[in-house]
Design a protein around this nucleic acid. Structure first.
Lengths: 350, 350
DNA sequence: TGCGGTCTTGCAAGCGCTTGCATTAATTCT
DNA sequence: AGAATTAATGCAAGCGCTTGCAAGACCGCA
């Protein structure tokens, strides 16, 4: 009655096959493979040998089903549908790398799903699929409420982003406000008079950076010029065109706080194209501290997000949630890294 | 006898619970959820409502077990253990993004596992776990033989990298040789006399680029200077230090072919630090065409890998393999993108 | 009233693996 | 040598879901 011939497992064999070949029961094979001491050494060796030569692969799904766990964490980048452009921001990537790394240490695999669970394409299929032991949202994007909803129904969720007062789930994030305040204050203290802001205010994280920017302005007694706030997406190409007009405003500002390094790079490229020098004419500070920022010309002064720490904290908290404890939200310090683009140091050449 | 209380599913409920609450059988719930026409409309609605309000999540594992498929593809970056640094090369990231995207379109999720299946930490656990319908290796790294082995046992594998003659599985890759030849030839045709090579020759892809470089040199009748071949890893920090001595060799070369854009960036930073101008004194060409390359100063002349096409082809071939057909290896054209760093155009400012 | 459809539903087997408990074989002890 | 341990196996139930097949409900029509 059973028909194994259609098995879709990578290697067509099952434990039953191995058991038969080894002349033992399935249980014994299972135990041999999981390293139980309840198996005679000789038996184990024989089984292992057969496993090897037959190219058997255990079916993790069945295994996990039986074990009632998945040892998998779903990592979601809440980005717009139809494109993963956004993800190519080095910051997100590095975060993914760190998460994969940290989760790996704890024996978890990472499942990247293309779309957030709520905009599932299956029409009329209004239920969520649980394929992981927990979920990490990297950034809230424009989906704060959905994420909140999701988190409310499922304890095993942590998210990276802006911790807001009304969040009832665990959010871990950088001190966006403080970081932005430092950055802006730094340029001001360097004698810059008028600082522009670049970023997408509809994203909570970015809005926090905007707040920090405003705070620094206020603290320095500067009046705020709304026209110097320019909406810009993360993607470098789009950022490039979003900020292409900035040079026209030029003498009105002599500093730029860009809410991500990629945006800073785009802005610098635009300024350069118009013959405006960075940092001589305009001081620029970014946010994130992406790896290549230190090697550019000029090198980018930025607010460093402690991404490694962040990943570790996220994973810690998620594992706590999975273990049934209550994870606690955290705000990680962000630190100003002074390089050339702000003009604090003299640029050396070129 | 059954104890559901310990279920680890994100939402603790099972179909059985829903069935009980709706006063129907499990089968009916299953059918209602999968959109079968074998369920009365009223029944379906009632069930859906209960599903909603109870926050039920279907257990994908069990579902997939029953369906004998996973709808998941494993994407593996064969990098050294203990770090995912390497992955932060924008090229790999973009590839990951494209793959996630393309696979998503076909209804597949992406599983990123930290380590290649062969260096599994579980001691004595010499079997492979099959948790996906197929596997994509992104780059062969130093693991050509392991990958070959792996592919030999399992049909559902494709890899991105250097197609070598003795590969018996499906490898898709850029025309590394041709691309490198073009790049080198371009500098030569610009009048440069002596071109250095930067990259890690132990990686097959890079070795192919090296071959292209040599070919162009030979074709131009240039003698080859082994001291101008400098070993450099992908990671930008490491590349920076690996190429830190390059300036010392300076008047011996007036061109650099870097086997990745990140390495090119590192090299340029080093040259600049020593007061050597790019492209005036030294012409530089990279490889990959990472997104930010166009916005740097100078912008990077490079060999573009058609990453979107690549991802699509990889996915196509893998799906063919999964469908039981024989996937065919392919070499994708790589195209030279001329920008500033090679010196073909005049740099505009700064 | 009775019979052949048409719809809906439930039953039960099965997906490949784990594990508590019972069973049997190998040892040790008195 | 016989009893009591201990070590090594197998049995069978169960993980949560799908699905072929059979059964029940309900319809119209002769």
């Amino acid at each position: 009655m059973t028909d194994k011939s259609t098995s879709e497992t990578v290697s067509g064999r099952t434990m039953e096959d191995i058991a038969r070949m080894a002349g033992v029961s399935e249980s014994t094979v299972s135990r041999a493979l999981s390293g139980s001491h309840l198996v005679a050494e000789k038996t184990r060796e024989r089984i292992l040998e057969i496993v090897q030569s037959s190219g058997f692969s255990i079916n993790e799904q069945a295994r996990n089903l039986a074990l009632r766990k998945t040892k998998t964490i779903e990592v979601i980048f809440p980005i717009e549908r139809g494109t993963l452009q956004h993800v190519s921001d080095p910051f997100f990537v590095d975060m993914l790398a760190v998460l994969t790394d940290e989760l790996g240490k704890q024996g978890y695999d990472v499942l990247m799903s293309r779309s957030p669970p709520w905009d599932d394409e299956r029409p009329g299929c209004a239920f969520l699929g649980a394929r992981a032991d927990g979920v990490i949202f990297v950034g809230q994007g424009r989906h704060r409420s959905e994420i909140r909803d999701f988190a409310r129904r499922h304890r095993q969720v942590v998210t990276w982003g802006a911790a807001l007062r009304d969040d009832d789930h665990c959010v871990v994030g950088s001190d966006n406000i403080g970081g932005a305040r430092q950055a802006t204050h730094h340029m001001l203290s360097l004698g810059r008079q008028s600082i522009a802001f670049l970023g997408d205010l509809s994203l909570p994280e970015i809005h926090q950076r905007y707040e920090g920017y405003r705070e620094a302005l206020a603290a320095a007694g500067k009046t705020f010029d709304p026209e110097l706030v320019i909406n810009s997406p993360f993607d470098i190409e789009q950022a490039r065109s979003a900020t292409s007009e900035i040079a026209n405003l030029y003498p009105r500002f002599d500093g730029i706080f860009a809410s991500s390094d990629m945006i800073a790079i785009a802005a610098i490229a635009n300024l350069r194209q118009s013959g405006i020098r960075v940092p001589d004419d305009v001081s620029v500070v970014g946010f994130d501290d992406i790896p290549s920022g230190a090697h550019m010309n000029p090198s980018i002064t930025t607010v460093r997000q402690k991404i490694r720490t962040a990943g570790r904290v996220l994973v810690d908290q998620l594992l706590r949630a999975i273990a049934g404890e209550t994870p606690s939200p955290q705000i990680l310090p962000a630190e100003l890294v002074v390089r050339q683009s702000c003009g604090a140091q003299q640029t050396s050449q070129n």
